[in-house]
Write a protein that binds this DNA or RNA. Sequence first.
DNA 1: CACGAGACCTGTTCGC
DNA 2: TGCGAACAGGTCTCGT
Length: 273
Amino acid sequence: MPELPEVETIARRLRDGAGPGSPSLVGMKISGSRLFWRRTLASPTPREFHSRIAGQRVKAVRRRGKFIVVDLRSGALLLHLRMGGALEILPAGTPRSPHCRLEFDLGPHWRLVFCNPRKFGRVWLVADPEQALGDLGPEPLSPGFTFARFSDLLENRRRQIKPLLLDQRVIAGLGNIYTDESLHRAGIHPLARADCLSMERRRRLWRAIRAVLREAIQHEGTTFDSAYNGGAFLPRLRVYQLTGAPCRKCGRPIARMLVGQRSSHFCPACQRK
DNA sequence: CACGAGACCTGTTCGC
DNA sequence: TGCGAACAGGTCTCGT
């Protein structure tokens, strides 16, 4: 589920508090942990994990791609929700959700809870976060992500543009929603070959990606159902899951097709190869 | 290197 | 109403 805007929202809420009375994770000490689904913990072993995390204080919380990074005094906790879920601080007395896969005690009053209905999510406790995050491509909203840099990423790439944008080694953070939305705004067909896009189209795509992500972050992401208790971007979607609805630019119906096993939504009139 | 299929999972919605 | 099929925001691995 969560893509860059949703993960950014989750990280901000952990860092800055999620509302009145909701604390920041930064500065808190993790006093214990419990694992409820074995495969959620990617590394190390549960025994090592529980013993190494206990007593650690949180130095910072940030996002890299679709990962939440919790920097500790020593090492870091990396969390990835994959296809939906929540990561939030709850009062210690809150009844445990049946989807809770891992939880951390933050002293006697609070807990950090990793909820993940589909069990695809993973958590790592690592000495050096860069070791695990090293394969990720650039952050699309960072100042260094210039048009020249983006254009270089497309150079000599014979792949279709949509799977390329979804490849986290190329750009970090885009998922199915925001690639469909970016391609529509840029007027580019999802199957267009990356290395065949004109400079003009590349520039439109670069602008579209950054505009869509920034706008989605402002609205705290897209909420479809309880899988992400988040933001209000849904009514601003122009193609994603809008098959048959009129295109906002030309009025023709939005189409759906499979691209690399993922459903893709686009306007056949506005987005030509 | 590029692509497709299958695996990992549960929950919700759709068609008959 | 009931039941199975289809589908869902992601990523990994394997085969061609």
